[in-house]
Design a binder for these strands. Structure first.
Lengths: 340, 340
DNA sequence: ACCACGCTTGAATCTTACA
DNA sequence: CTGTAAGATTCAAGCGTGG
């Protein structure tokens, strides 16, 4: 990471070691043994050591992120609180904590706790003043046209997606499902963005990034994981360009001044605008302002004034008559883009 | 809290301030953060203040908890990471993080983030060696007879449950739903346990505790909230004793030695027992031991030996024939309790 | 082709009473 | 305190096999 230039990364997804502290073996009710995470890379002496490790990579990630970039970190209760605190201490700005609800978690075999059925992701901007990217409309479209919530129900990574070694055993103990990365990248990156995964493992992030036509950098120190990741990414094919274009955000639409619509003749000066119920009315002035009695100003200001509201979206409030039908101003904005 | 004796509390539920003013105080025009990582802590003096406050009450709660007691804390991403870290630093032992999924959350009006549709609870024992209480069977019964997961779907506190002042405005900004406390107390306390809520607000914890026949101590410094809480608790009536008794854990059921069943004639010496598939068999000896060839011992040991298993629950492994049907030994244990 | 059934498995801080 | 024995404990999916 130290070799990469500052401010060069749009989005980071990090799945760091969780610092699990397992004691002894765990057996299922049928006496088979649970294949838990006992790898060296997940062993830390104490919280202080884990905190030093965490701080080091979070500082470095922050150096690499451009000002408006965002970071995703996934973890469990063993480590996520330490990570969240440190994010705040380092000046990151938490945007959401997102819960990955597992549809098929491992049960609690001893009946001593609630089934550990979720993991937590933190989504944070580099700083409080970041103008971060959030593809609101794409998320809404992905969720049957209602806002995407902070809890996501997704299955574990199993079946053919799970990478296995020559003995048929899982290659990596904690391979994340591609569906999770799909949603993460769709929510917070755009085509050709640069995505970094500092704990790339078997390459889920790079693979999904390539599929979605994002650029990617994956870092992994374990040779077996890295090798598997490289092969996996090579096998992955970018989706056709038109299929990775998602519903665009309103705010991504190039801003169109109302005046320019008048200027370009999409709406004539003198046209009378009304609200949908035709309760108030105003006239379009040649400079793109509206006039209604003694009130004059932008489409938003006049709309607010006439309804005694603190604010008003003039694009959806004001309507004009066309072929006997009331149309919101917004349709003109769309037309102006099509004819630009 | 300083007036209460050490080790006097079975369970604490805490809904501390979420540190919302912190966000206001952190609103700075200049966010030019130095990547030098050693001197940034004092820039977050407000976090430090919140941490001092948090540490103080968590230390005091730990003094009050008996060794096997547990603590619940609820929070959002603004404060829960700081609380979780501090719990770990203070020696608490996290058992679960539990997600309260709100069925009716407030939407995100600006469309700049995911709908914040959950809050996080941490359930922790006083220490790593706590033999904490978890009413596993009661939770399972509450969840259609499958294990209760770490994500709970419950509605916000609305309607008649929501306390309002004389102007019809909500009395407390973050009144928690009684259903949440119902599940918390049912999971981790028993009848006549002592429950403490150090941030009692309008008394949801005391009210539900009283209803479920738990003793309670609520602390609240705001006079309006305290007054409302007192009235609310007074109006609350404890449920009839038989309706607060829940499914009991098997571990709590009085232990019945297998030998006593033979002694009392519920099973004759000489009876032949088999496993459910009739693959192995053993004979009941008059002293309550089993014999199978050269193997002799308890129902558990012989079951384990004949199946080459490290352990075996003889009560569910061994069956006897009754009216042509194979019955597990466990049914005799139930009968013995009924006829005791 | 389809279904029933059994086997496997997944980031897990996973027992307790009594001698 | 330690050692020993009793005995409590699993859900959703995917996959393979055999009828």
């Amino acid at each position: 990471m130290r070799l990469l230039p500052a401010g060069s990364i749009d989005c980071v997804f990090a799945d760091p070691p969780y610092n699990l502290q397992l004691r002894g073996e765990l057996r299922r009710p049928d006496d088979s043994i649970v294949d838990g995470v006992d790898d060296d890379w997940d062993r830390f002496g104490d919280f202080a050591e884990y905190d030093r490790f965490t701080r080091a990579w979070l500082v470095e990630v922050r150096r690499l992120l451009r000002k408006d970039g965002t970071l995703w970190v996934i973890g469990s209760y063993h480590n996520i609180f330490r990570i969240g605190s440190m994010l705040q201490d380092l000046g990151y700005w938490i945007l959401n904590d997102v819960i990955w609800r597992k549809s098929n978690p491992m049960p609690n075999f001893r009946g001593r706790r609630f089934t550990n059925a979720h993991e937590t992701m933190i989504w944070a901007a580099r700083g409080r003043d970041s103008r971060y990217r959030f593809n609101y409309q794409a998320m809404k479209a992905l969720n049957d046209d209602v806002q995407m919530r902070s809890d996501w129900l997704l299955p574990l990574c199993t079946g053919p997606e799970r990478l296995r070694n020559e003995h048929g055993l899982k290659l990596h103990p904690t391979q994340k499902p591609e569906s999770l990365l799909h949603r993460v990248l769709l929510a917070s990156t755009g085509v050709d963005d640069i995505v970094l995964d500092p704990f790339a493992g078997t390459g889920t992030t790079p693979a999904v990034a390539r599929r979605l036509r994002r650029h990617f950098i994956g870092i992994e120190r374990h040779p077996d994981y890295a090798e598997a990741a490289i092969g996996r990414v090579r096998r992955e094919r970018p989706l056709p360009m038109d299929s990775v274009m998602t519903t665009t955000n309103r705010r991504e639409v190039a801003r169109v001044p109302f005046g320019s619509l008048v200027e370009r003749g999409l709406l004539s000066a003198g046209t009378i605008l009304t609200d949908r119920q035709r309760r108030v009315a105003a006239t379009v002035a040649p400079d793109g302002s509206l006039v209604s009695g003694s009130v004059r100003g932008s489409i938003h200001k006049v709309g607010a004034a006439l309804t005694n509201a603190p604010s008003c979206n003039g694009w959806t409030f004001w309507h004009f008559e066309e072929a006997g039908v009331l149309q919101p101003l917004d349709v003109l904005r769309t037309r102006s883009l099509e004819t630009a």
